[in-house]
Design a protein around this nucleic acid. Structure first.
Length: 883
DNA sequence: CGCTCCCGCCATGCC
DNA sequence: GGCATGGCGGGAGCG
């Protein structure tokens, strides 16, 4: 044994070659037999090449114990020790150094050397970050395991995480294909988008963990009712939604990894503490997490974190909170992702290195599809699942149980189709939900300054956001192409500091219960996005949804991070801040301060169901939209961010962070806080509640001048029919003389104008305390302007939160679902869809009756405005009414 | 002592 | 029944 060891040692230097050698492996060599290799020993050695190979063999042969012993022995050797000493603790992340690492490890049996992180580094060192697209590198688990001298089990841990980021994909049994980082940015982008949808604002605002935790728990319950953890993005695995999902908690590690990454991407601070992450990730939405489970989750997170650390995506930090110091991880990877669906990176961008890369397919699909595809709802919908099933089967070719993965890889077409299907489904859903009533109802809710929650992030359920362009709203042309253009254009404009978006302000509609948060800074950006016409909505809805929300989120995040370039700088400060302040809470979720407060409390069964449905759709959406989005919108994002920053600067008062808590803090500091938009999808599309932050300073409003009132939009709530009774309420505070925006602008004038053409009759308009938003109702072709009253009808499906809220609060509410106002022109609002609020929603939904008099509302509003001042004003209809 | 997290048992699922 | 995966958590290394 000793001999072996020695031999190893010696070669080690040469070992460096190993990686190279491995490279040889590239080119999927069939040799590598995908077949389950017989245990290491058996497997034929691919490379006799160097002595290393022999070593490998030996190693493989040797039992772990043997190795350990040997290592230990070696340790004792003086020389070796000296060498070892070199390797301080640092297991550097240098991928390249694997050779050194190897040595160290070998030499030292120490635990560290066996760490998964180190192992991962070694693993990564073996493969090029950006492999030539032409070559395929296959990874044989057994080989790698033997080479690295670890058990296969460990390799699985690594591979699963890598797979979650699409750095590798499973090709066959025991065989993975190395993709490298070509797609990493895309993957991250997708995750970010998905994360925004799921976790929405949670992360953005800095909250205390507790809050987060609670929120998460609640959310999950609500939003994710059924789902266990499904891969948000199932890159390779299509199965997510499909039935297979459940089996074996499939790949929970991968899913966890994705979620974990999502948390970072969504988090403003980019710091996530393990415990929060664990709580969030704990499937059990159900009751409080058991301790044991929590513990287990944390262990898993460590595993994931080690791999991510090796990838250079995160680093460990500590967040000090009141409670004490907590372990946390900070995202040090890319924050901004190029818009392009293509590779952002120089590396083989356009051509997807990965044959099956969904993205590529998606992108393509996207472009072409965006043009205008309409999928029949059912058809698409139906097709979707079948597709997957088919896919699996088909893909199953590789007998590996995980055919899915293969499918992904192998069948790019399938992926594309899948994506398409998803998109179609999304649309359908949107269309259905919104249906004739496409009009986006807005519920204006006064935001109480103190409301705990600002925004509740909806974990998953974000529905596709629909952008409504006021002007173009109905325009057929609007289609995706426009949207993309406009969005980009808008973005660019915004960068210039001009709020050009005006005409097309996107609206986000969230069917189910999604909340949107608007950040002042963000708003502009959001606004910047072109509003799609109604049709666009339908068509693009899926895309838009995915795209929009994310964009918003990013923007928010960008606040701090700001531009990508800036991000780096920002990050550190942010981190510091966090540590210093509290912000350490990596994830800032907007959650009701008190869990108890959260209206959601317990998910109502009914709600759960509804939500569940949504979820699925969402998932679908996520997957599909993401890709397309990237192409169209992403471009805007960065810009947005910048703009935001600019804006923020200009605005001075505005605060970047949307989070309520955030707001609270910020508010304290700054008079004007960002406004939020709340969109509550609870009732499904039928009732949308939008909240606009009330805080806007008049000046902010002025921004609106552009047609992009969004920035300044305070809070607008459009109550349901109940509200109808109320014509429009303008917050008194609303002094800003902003030039009334033509249509949807929120300007005061607008408020007066509120009468929506379509909605006018019933639609009540609400204006937040400070600002008034008038949803313009542009005649939306698809939407029924007139139906505003109907929303209730729609509500039924939506029940989810609203229902819960209703249930909780007052059944009455149920009866009156929120009336939707059609916002034709969301334009004004830079809404970011985010999570939904739980309890608060209730308030929203409450009909005036339940709430009390409309007058009461008004009063409330007035009060709120007074009280709330700049701080977030939430529409707390509930506050007054609830009890 | 608490944070990390290695290690490997064993369940799950597919041949 | 064998094998591939991978969930899981005991318990030990480490600071």
């Amino acid at each position: 044994e000793n001999i072996f060891e020695r031999s190893r040692m010696a070669p080690k230097t040469p070992i460096k070659s190993e990686p190279i050698d491995l490279s040889k492996q590239k080119g999927c060599t069939p040799e590598r037999n995908p077949i389950t290799p017989v245990k290491i020993i058996d497997r034929p050695q691919p490379d006799p090449w160097t002595p290393t190979a022999n070593l490998k063999i030996l190693v493989s042969a040797a039992s772990p114990d043997m190795r350990d012993r040997e290592k230990k022995k070696e340790l004792f050797r003086p020389i070796e020790n000296s060498e070892q000493s070199d390797t301080p603790d640092s297991l550097q992340y240098d991928i390249v150094d694997d050779s050194t690492v190897d040595e160290f490890e070998k030499q030292r049996p120490s635990r560290k050397q066996k760490s998964l992180g180190l192992l991962c580094q070694k693993f990564l060192a073996r493969y090029p970050n950006y492999p030539l697209s032409t070559e395929k590198t296959t990874i044989s688990l057994d080989e790698v395991a033997s080479i690295l001298g670890v058990e296969r089990r460990r390799i699985y841990d690594i591979v699963n995480v890598l797979e979650s980021l699409q750095l590798v994909s499973r090709v066959a049994k025991n065989q993975y294909c190395w993709h490298g980082r070509h797609n990493l940015s895309q993957t991250l982008k997708m995750l970010q988008e998905a994360g925004e949808l799921q976790y929405g604002e949670l992360m953005t605002s800095q909250h205390k963990e507790q809050d987060l935790e609670y929120k998460f728990g609640e959310r999950k319950k609500e939003t994710i009712p059924d789902s266990q953890d499904r891969p948000l993005l199932d890159f390779s695995e299509p199965d997510c939604i499909s039935a297979s999902a459940n089996s074996r908690k499939d790949k929970s590690l991968r899913i966890m990894s994705q979620k974990f990454v999502m948390l970072f991407l969504v988090s403003k601070t980019k710091i996530v503490t393990l415990d929060i992450a664990a709580k969030i990730l704990i499937e059990e939405t159900q009751d409080t997490v058991d301790h044991s489970k929590f513990k287990t989750k944390v262990r898993r997170l460590y595993d994931i974190a080690n791999v991510l650390t090796s990838l250079g995506l995160i680093k460990k930090v500590h967040v000090t909170e009141e409670r004490g110091r907590k372990p946390a991880f900070k995202w040090i990877g890319p924050v901004e992702f190029p818009e392009k669906t293509d590779e952002l990176r120089g590396h083989s961008p356009t051509s997807d290195p990965l044959p099956g890369t969904q993205r590529g397919a998606c992108a393509q699909y996207h472009t072409s599809a965006t043009g205008k595809q309409r999928f029949t709802r059912h058809a698409s919908f139906n097709s979707a699942q079948p597709c997957e099933a088919t896919r699996r089967r088909v893909s199953s070719e590789p007998n590996s149980p995980r055919q899915e993965r293969q499918a992904c890889i192998v069948n790019s077409d399938e992926n594309c189709s899948k994506m398409i299907n998803l998109a179609a489904v999304c649309r359908q859903k949107i269309e259905e939900d919104i249906g004739s009533n496409i009009t986006l109802p807005f519920s204006l809710l006064p935001v109480p300054g103190d409301s705990d929650f600002c925004v509740n992030p909806l974990p998953q359920t974000v529905f596709p956001v629909i952008r409504a362009d006021v002007p173009s709203f109905s325009l057929p042309n609007g289609i995706s192409s426009q949207a993309s253009h406009s969005s980009t254009a808008a973005a660019s404009k915004t960068e210039n500091g001009k709020p050009t978006l005006v005409p097309n302000q996107p609206f986000l509609c969230f069917p189910s219960s999604s909340l949107f948060m608007l950040c002042s800074g963000l708003q502009e950006n959001n606004l910047s996005e072109p509003l799609p016409t109604a049709e666009d909505l339908g068509n693009r809805s899926a895309e838009a949804q995915a795209a929009v929300p994310p964009t918003v989120c990013q923007k928010r995040s960008s606040h701090k991070c700001s531009s990508p370039s800036a991000s780096v700088d920002d990050e550190e400060p942010a981190a510091k801040k966090q540590t210093l302040e509290q912000s350490d809470l990596p994830l800032s979720l907007v959650v009701p301060k008190k869990p108890s407060e959260s209206p959601k409390a317990e998910p109502c069964p009914g709600i759960g169901c509804s939500s569940a449905v949504h979820l699925e759709t969402n998932h679908l959406d996520l997957a599909s939209p993401a890709a397309p989005e990237a192409a169209n919108k992403e471009s805007t994002k960065p810009l947005d961010c910048q703009e935001q920053e600019k804006q923020s600067q200009n605005r001075d008062p505005d605060e970047p962070p949307p989070g309520n808590e955030h707001i609270s803090k910020e508010n304290a500091n700054q008079p004007f806080q960002p406004q939020y938009l709340y969109v509550q999808p609870t009732a499904g599309l039928s009732s949308f509640n939008f909240l606009f932050s009330a805080n806007q300073a008049p000046g902010a409003i002025s921004l609106a001048a552009n047609q992009l009132p969004s920035l300044s939009v305070p809070c607008v709530m459009v109550p349901s029919a109940a509200l109808a009774s109320f014509p429009l309420v303008c917050s008194p505070s609303f002094t800003s003389p902003l030039p009334p925006v033509p249509d949807g602008s929120f300007s005061t004038a607008a408020s007066t104008n509120f009468s929506m053409s379509g909605l006018a009759p019933t639609t009540p308009v609400f204006i937040s305390t400070t600002a008034v938003v008038t949803p313009k109702v542009s005649p939306t072709p698809s939407v029924d302007p007139q139906q505003p009253a109907h929303p209730a009808l729609h509500l039924s499906p939506v029940l989810t939160r609203s229902c819960s809220a209703v249930k909780l609060d007052s059944p009455m509410c149920m009866g009156h679902p929120v009336t939707l106002l059609k916002l034709q022109q969301p334009s004004s609002a830079p809404l970011t869809p985010k999570s939904i609020r739980p309890a608060h929603h209730e308030a929203f939904f409450k009909t005036p009756g339940s709430l009390g008099d409309p007058v009461a509302w008004k009063k409330n509003e007035g009060n709120q405005t007074r009280n709330a001042s700049s701080v977030q004003r939430r529409l707390e209809i509930s506050s007054t009414s609830p009890d």
